[in-house]
Amino acid sequence: MPCSDSVSAEAFETGEAVCGQAIEWRRDFHRHPELLFDVDRTAARVAGLLRDFGCDEVTTGIGRSGVVAVIRGRTAPTSRTIGIRADMDALPILEATGLPYASAVPGHMHACGHDGHMAILLGAVKHLTATRAFSGTLVAIFQPAEEGGGGAKVMIEDGLFERFGIEEVYGLHNMPGMDVGTFAISDGVMLAASDRFDIKILGKGGHAAQPHETIDPILVANHVVGALQSIVSRSVDPIDPVVLSVTSIHAGDAYNVIPSEVLLKGTVRTLSETSRDKIESRVGALVSSVAKAFGAEAEFDYRRGYPPTVNHPIPAGILGDAAARVAGDAPVRRNTAPIMGAEDFSYMLKTRPGAFIFMGNGMTAPLHNHRYDFNDEALPFGVALWVELVTRERN
Rank of each mutant, 00 (worst) to 15 (best):
T59E: 14
I23G: 02
H30T: 00
A69W: 03
R85N: 00
G61P: 04
A86E: 10
R26T: 12
I84L: 14
L49M: 15
D89A: 13
A47D: 05
I71K: 06
L91Q: 08
T59P: 03
I62M: 09
T78D: 12
G66V: 10
T60E: 13
R85C: 00
P33T: 03
R85K: 01
L91A: 11
I71M: 14
A69N: 04
G73F: 01
E24Q: 15
G54F: 04
W25Q: 09
M88N: 04
G66P: 07
E24W: 08
T75V: 05
D40E: 13
V67L: 01
R27F: 12
D56I: 07
D87W: 00
G54W: 03
V46L: 11
D52S: 14
T60P: 00
L91D: 07
D87R: 01
T59G: 06
R64Q: 14
T42A: 13
L91P: 06
V39E: 08
V68F: 01
I84T: 13
V67Q: 01
E57A: 03
T42I: 13
R51S: 14
A69R: 02
V68G: 02
G73L: 03
L35M: 05
H30S: 00
G83V: 02
P77F: 09
V70L: 05
D87M: 01
S65L: 10
R41S: 02
A69H: 02
R64A: 14
E24M: 10
D40P: 00
P92I: 11
G54D: 04
V58R: 04
G54L: 03
G83W: 02
S65H: 10
V46E: 11
D40R: 11
R64Y: 11
H32G: 06
D40S: 13
G48C: 09
I23D: 02
G73D: 03
L91S: 11
L36I: 09
C55A: 15
A43N: 08
I71E: 08
G63I: 03
A43G: 08
G83P: 01
H30V: 00
V46Y: 14
G73Q: 02
C55T: 13
T81D: 10
T59S: 13
L35E: 05
R80M: 08
R85S: 01
C55Y: 13
I84E: 12
G48A: 15
V39G: 05
L49I: 13
A43E: 08
I84R: 12
T60S: 05
F37C: 02
D40L: 07
V68P: 00
D89P: 05
D38F: 08
